[in-house]
Amino acid sequence: MSRMSYSKALGTAIAEEMRRDENVLCIGLDLAYYGGAFGVTRGLAEEFGTDRIMNMPISEAGYTGLAVGAAATGLRPVVELQFGDWVTIASDQLVNQAANMRYMFGGTLSIPMVMRLPCGGGGSAGAQHSHMFESWFSFVAGLKVAAPSTPADAKGLLKTAIRDNNPVIFFEHRQCYQLQGEVPDDPEYLIPFGKADIKREGKDITIVTYSYMVHMALEAAKILEKDGISAEIIDLRTIKPLDTDTIINSVKKTNRVLCLQETWLTCSVASEVAAIISEQAFDYLDAPVKRFGSPDCPVPFAPVLENYVLPNTDKIVRAVKEMF
């Protein structure tokens, strides 16, 4: 085990996979020397050279498509967008091309690529540098979606993503990059997709969440404990595939569930989880399933406005208490 940041854990995962497989390369803005917008690839160009840590022009559709073509012909590109919000610019290459190609072509080729998206609110970044589009991509057949919360998960999931033979959209929350944690040194430390992690056991309510909200939920659970409410926190880790079994088993135990996410609730991951629970565990519920996230408005700039919109520990505590 080594103690390191989420950012360093991601960089370590990439470096290990690049040493293991010469077909792995990184494509994105300012990746070499500068290390990418959040320092994830810092130091990698020195080891692997700029043929494998490639700086691109500011052409999100162009270099995402470049990665799709490279993946279709035997490479394993890891693409970083400077901010995940800009995935809109690259979306045709992900949705109409990457996600469909294996299927349309009758399984004759595959697209093993990872799309790394730094994302999420906080810090007054405004509406074009704060959003997360995990719900959009989870909707698309042919894609996989991961959203780790801790340094260890970041490493284990990114390594799995790089070895996966499908396009993986990898959401990295900006507020997680500097979080520190213990990370296994084992270069074969792989976290399978579709396996949620119970980050905290509890008996009175299940909070199903992912990404940075896991940490907010854990803080909320400490406060709730003092008020006699024992919360179980499920970190989905991957949204697609989704670990339905872990969710249902937990709900059967706690009989209450809060589906928590940072982003808009309309047609969201939280809505999907709520629907699955109502289909599969309705008889076990002692209270209606509750969703909690952001209202349907863009993330604002002013701290007072941003705090009003984004979920936080106090709001989660209140939301849970309303269920008892």
Binding site: Y63, G65, L66, G69, A72
Partner: peptide, 14 residues
Amino acid sequence: IPIATGAALSAKYK
């Protein structure tokens, strides 16, 4: 167009 460019990247890379 970008996909062909990516295939060319593969060829150059390999």
